[in-house]
Write a protein that binds this DNA or RNA. Structure first.
Lengths: 214, 214, 214, 214
DNA sequence: AATGAATGAGGCTTCATTCAT
DNA sequence: CATGAATGAAGCCTCATTCAT
């Protein structure tokens, strides 16, 4: 118990820092939040942050990692486990994203899009490590999308596409969904992308605002 | 000496400042570039920038305005003037965007995506004026896309779509194209989005890397 | 006419600059007003100010000179010409100062005290020329006060004073009046000092708010 | 280690900053001293100042507060405790002020007057908080002077005055003393005001340069 | 005689980071 | 393990001043 306790406490501090930083970066951009603020948000002394992260950059990297992992395990994995048909999987993914976007809009009055894309677009050029990390995550997303694509092609509904291109295209639609929803501060844009994706798969566009969270 | 309106010394200084700032913000983000640097890039004293812009924020707004106007007049207008068919117009737009992305990649070794989206995603939350300006620009883009959508629907190739939704979706694909191409540092992603757009219009996907700049 | 015209115009520009600067320094202190603002207030280009004054400091000096001369000729000289008795002269001086302080309070909502004292207290240490100029002016004020003192001593109303000390004391009361009225934003303080001065002269304290401008 | 309240490191740093700032503002005016200089004078990094004060303005306010409190407790309180008769109290006050002015003149070669009046005259218009703070302090000074006035009236030496007016007038003489002594760089002016005050109280003018510090 | 345009230096403030306890 | 205190570098902005016309 003694050793474990310490490890646990330290780990929980670390997680708290990451979580609140993730939230702040998400809402306000990397350069828009200071270390002072991050310390306040995590209810930690600023120096404590430096105990766990060598850098603000290192913290951002950890944020990217954790956010990516969470997204994969809370959006993609469940959607794939709950469904087998490619269009159903896609629908599940979009319903999930849409739901959390609606929540965000409700509780914050605004839509912040995808935190990883945000960080990467802002910092890609000046912090290669972040970009590399994002690449890893998006590769895994693309792998999921590609699986959907290949299943749809195999099922004969998506015609004239090769698996790789359609996979990439589905990812792009997701990126577009995040960008558009943030630009317009409108969660509905998520559904547009979902429906367009379904359309490319050769399935009916079944996502609608009223039925989105059914 | 007659009044050569836009060629006075003041106006040209102003434009020089805007242009170099646009470039710098594009590559490195708003918070990533300092006023000192912006002054150097424009070969102007820092105080001179403040003769023309009350703020760094005001400069960013001017950058957004000019970039938006330029994009509309150099990408959308020519594409619509040169072609009548919706799919041809769309193709022209994407060829144009792709071409300039390839150029960028060649001359800079990297792809920076859409400068307006970049600025807006970074600053939207903290600078409402920028977001409002971006909204205006994207509304005009959406109007173009909607015209393409409506023509395609009228021509009977795009089936099952209503004009507004398809228009929005085409815009989203463009957003996705910019995001993806920057994230992957790959101009080819632009073409993916173009082809997906064509597909939604019910047209053949004619864009390919080799033939992109034909 | 030609030569005169030019001289006149230049001179009037110079005066305009001095006058508006005097006003601004008075209200807001030397360091509180920028050359940009001074140019705007005088409706002149900033460079024009430098045609007439080598420096901001030189302008302040000119302001001090002119303000001093004006005060002497509009407050002290008339009061001495209109009256012979020392207490009447003093009364006239204080009525005059009080009146203009009331006007100031009415038109500006605040009381700014004595412009020369203000500038000198602020800049005395860093600009000896201003201090020297102020000294000259206050010496002349002291000469007036000393005359009043000596007349009152001669008349036997002020007893136990020597002329020099009483003169200096009367000046001090005037300084105190300006400081207090500005600190309290209350023109009435001027009258307190006037009455105290009369008291030291051995005369009845005849100044009151209601009768101040009789 | 017990809590030595006012001796913690933080508190002593804070006091050091206030003290050196008080000195600098006193000698050279608010706008005449930069934050860089204030940091140097306090042997602290500039950023440290901002740990304790949100603003240069907030620092000036703290300076005003502390200076005011110190003046009251080192000049007025002891004078009142040591003496009961109104004229003796007044004499003590002026001896005290004169002594410190002489010291100042000796060690600095110049006389800087009252730091609070200086700051307030310079900043009153642009920083209402300073003015309000000064008002509070001067109200307390006035209360002391009023007590002297009322005692003198009760004792029958000051005739024809009401307590409030005489109190205000005594304060004004003090203001005038500070202004005059700084303008003339002459500590002797303090005594002029002291003697005038005694005169108004109906007491003999006992202050003289030679005997001032007896 | 006067102006629009430009500048170098410096102002205030805040940042990411480290030290000492 | 965590903190309060401190720092150098840098950020944005404004100042007094000058140049070229």
């Amino acid at each position: 118990m003694p050793a474990t306790a310490l490890t646990t406490k330290a780990a929980s501090t670390r997680e708290r820092i990451i979580d609140s930083a993730a939230d702040a970066f998400w809402r306000r951009s990397y350069h828009g939040v200071s270390m002072d603020e991050l310390a306040d948000l995590a209810s930690v002394n600023k120096a404590t942050i430096y105990r766990y992260f060598s850098d603000k950059a290192a913290l951002a990297l950890a944020v990217t990692e954790k956010t990516g992992a969470q997204t994969l395990s809370s959006v993609f994995e469940p959607s794939f486990e709950a469904h087998l048909a490619p269009d159903e999987r896609l629908e599940a993914i979009y319903r999930c994203v849409h739901m959390s976007t609606v929540d965000m809009r409700t509780s914050n009055g605004d839509v912040f899009g995808c935190p990883i894309i945000g960080l990467t677009l802002e910092l890609g050029q000046e912090m290669p490590a972040i970009r590399k990390q994002a690449e890893t995550i998006f590769n895994r997303v693309e792998a999921y999308m590609r699986l959907i694509a290949s299943d749809a092609i195999a099922a004969g509904t998506a015609t004239g596409w090769d698996e790789a291109t359609l996979g990439r295209t589905l990812v792009q639609l997701l990126h577009g969904a995040f960008a558009s929803s943030r630009l317009a501060s409108d969660p509905g844009r998520i559904l547009d992308a979902g429906n367009a994706s379904l359309s490319l798969l050769g399935s009916p566009r079944t996502l609608s605002i009223s039925g989105a969270s059914q």
